[in-house]
Design a protein around this nucleic acid. Structure first.
Length: 553
RNA sequence: GCGCCUGUAGCUCAGUUGGAUAGAGCAUCGGACUUCUAAUCCGAGGGCCGGGGGUUCGAAUCCCUCCAGGCGCGCCA
């Protein structure tokens, strides 16, 4: 890719930040105290009349220099380098420094969008750094439920987002195909097989009693009947089929993985053994009551945890530490885990284990996704996998649609509990914000279908865009890269949804007031360029969210 | 009991290092289609940001405390 010579020149907020830094340097030479080593972040003013970006740096200066913010701001502004080529107004209001972008800049920004199309903007925050995002990782003991769906949506949107930011992203699913849960799965299948043969069987509460195993037993009875005593075989058989099913569901949900890691491979490669050995060497493990314990209290855990049982079998913690050690060894710059919030108590012990091994814990970010409860026909449903009383993700996708479902999960912060009201989601489907955004996209596509001349959108006279609604759209689009960077740096894909709604709203309003086709040719072309720009930004945003931009509705 | 998360409009939720008069969607009420798709647009009402205390020039945001909800506290994963 040919890199632009002028680098970030098209990014107004970057240039403003740089200008502020220069001004700070200058007033420092005049004897002012200036904040050192502080990243200058711009914010978006709450009101349009306050411009496009604002800085509150003067409030910091006020504290450091014992002068009113207004005075500090004014002095700083006096020392700003010339910005006229892209900023039309710099104003100090109550200590805030407000920057209003100039029209020529906004026009060139649109030109930039039209050049890159849906790929706009090209960001290079990640600078090719490698990120691993591990998510879903549901045990292959039953179909995914709606809670997994939330983690899946967030994980895949976050992956897309970081990829957009110039990170090299790998998406990974960790499969726990070892241990008691898998054993129980095999036992449950065995019981179902015996049931088919007319035997009266009783399930313990720990067994998986969902219909899916009954169906599996019926479908595969012939090939399994010889193996019905071989629990290990049945466990493998069932978990493999279920995993395939899970991955299929996720694919329908727009989620795919670059890598699947199986827990049993960690054992086969002696990684668990080695991790335990190393922990022993690093004095992280001691023996008590015949078991081996991880001294996790040393690093803030509530109590020490068993890592190898009395019977010498390692616990889940052992393989998980081994797994994370292995992930670290692959050399990523950032590791993200997306976990169900019910695992939160598990974090301190894992971190303690990693700390003993001397792994850089700041490279591991764990995003907890809170529970999803479901309301259907006015009733709250439980999500227990074992009892089999849950609404599967597959059913949900079928009922409300992939796009609505993803959007629903992606508008909210991960750490709030979510009540998914299925009746409402279905009933309100046409009013749903996701359709609102898609409709904006479809309307623009429709305009272009209607447009007969079909010229290339080049050499546009963008200065003919003068309507307030047009300027508003230009200003909003100019925020997009800034917004994306904020979402990327904070690992918060949900910021994108509100922005897309706002952009769609500005478009619908424009569409309502201003006729795009049919005016004087140069104006028509400029307007087409404008709405094409809007379409590209919407398409770009929806692509990150994993939602289909629609051509028609 | 202890730990973690949450509490913002009737409902579902946003709210960039603490900053300007707290926002959106839905719902409600009132208006707009001989026009590029009305799945749209415009307007109105609606809030002691759970309560109380504190830090600060400034708090929805930070600290303490209480209340409410969820989750966790296994030699399960």
């Amino acid at each position: 890719m040919q890199k632009r010579k002028n680098g970030n020149l098209w990014r107004a907020e970057k240039r403003i930040t740089k200008a502020i830094q220069e001004a700070l340097q200058k007033i420092k030479e005049e004897g002012w105290n200036v904040p050192e080593g502080k990243e200058i972040l711009l914010q978006r003013p709450r009101k349009e009349e306050w411009g496009d970006f604002s800085s509150q740096i003067a409030f910091n200066l006020a504290g450091l220099n014992k002068k009113p913010p207004q005075v500090c701001a004014e002095n700083l502004v006096k020392n700003l380098p010339p910005l006229e080529d892209f900023v039309e107004k710099v104003e100090v209001v109550g200590g805030f420094i407000n920057f209003t972008l100039g029209l020529p800049y906004l026009f060139s920004f649109l030109t930039e969008i039209l050049k890159e199309r849906e790929n706009f903007p090209r960001l290079d925050l990640g600078k090719g750094k490698r990120v691993l995002i591990e998510f879903v990782s549901a045990n292959p003991t039953g179909p995914l439920h709606i809670g997994h769906g939330r983690g899946a949506a967030i994980g895949s949107a976050l992956s897309n987002l970081l990829e957009k930011g110039g990170y090299k992203v790998e998406r990974e699913y960790y499969v726990n195909n070892v241990g008691r849960q898998i054993e129980l799965l095999g036992e449950s299948l065995a019981l179902r097989l015996r049931e088919i043969e007319g035997e009266k069987v009783t399930f313990s509460p720990d067994h998986y009693q969902g219909e899916y195993l009954k169906e599996m037993a019926e479908t595969h009875y012939k090939e399994l009947k010889e193996k019905k005593e071989d629990i290990a075989y049945l466990s493998r058989f069932a978990s493999q089929l279920i995993l395939e099913d899970i991955l299929e569901t996720l694919k329908n949900f727009g989620v795919e993985f670059d890598r699947i890691t199986y827990e049993d491979s960690l054992y086969k490669e002696s990684r668990v053994e080695k991790a335990i050995e190393e922990l022993k060497k690093k004095k992280g493990i001691y023996e008590k009551d015949g078991a081996l314990w991880l001294a996790s209290t040393q690093f803030g855990d509530e109590k020490d945890r068993v890592i190898v049982r009395k019977d010498r079998r390692p616990t889940y913690l052992a393989s998980d530490i081994a797994y994370h050690k292995e992930k670290f060894s692959r050399g990523y710059d950032l590791l993200v885990n997306i976990w169900g919030a019910d695992h939160h108590g598990y974090i301190p012990r894992l971190r303690a284990g990693l700390k003993f091994l001397g792994l850089p814990k700041e490279k591991l970010k764990i995003i907890l996704v809170q529970m999803v409860s479901l309301i259907k026909e006015g009733k709250k449903l439980s999500l227990s996998t074992r009892k089999g009383e849950f609404v599967s993700l597959e059913d949900l996708i079928e009922e409300v649609g992939k796009d609505v479902c993803r959007f629903f999960f992606l508008t909210r912060r991960p750490d709030t509990q979510l009540e998914f009201n299925i009746d409402l989601a279905k009933k309100e489907a046409p009013e749903n914000p996701v359709y609102y955004i898609q409709y904006a996209h479809a309307r623009i596509a429709s305009i272009f279908r209607k447009w007969e001349k079909r010229k290339p959108l080049e050499g546009l006279s963008l200065q003919l865009l003068k309507e307030p609604e047009e300027i508003k759209l230009l200003r909003l689009m100019a925020l997009y890269p800034w917004l994306l960077e904020g979402a990327i740096n904070s690992l918060e894909p949900h910021r994108l949804t509100a922005y897309l709604q706002e952009l769609a709203n500005a478009f619908h309003r424009y569409y309502d007031r201003v006729k795009i086709l049919g005016g004087e040719e140069k104006v028509e072309l400029a307007r087409l360029g404008l709405v094409e720009g809007v379409r590209c930004v919407i398409a770009s945003g929806l692509k990150i969210l994993g939602i289909q931009p629609r051509e028609r509705m």
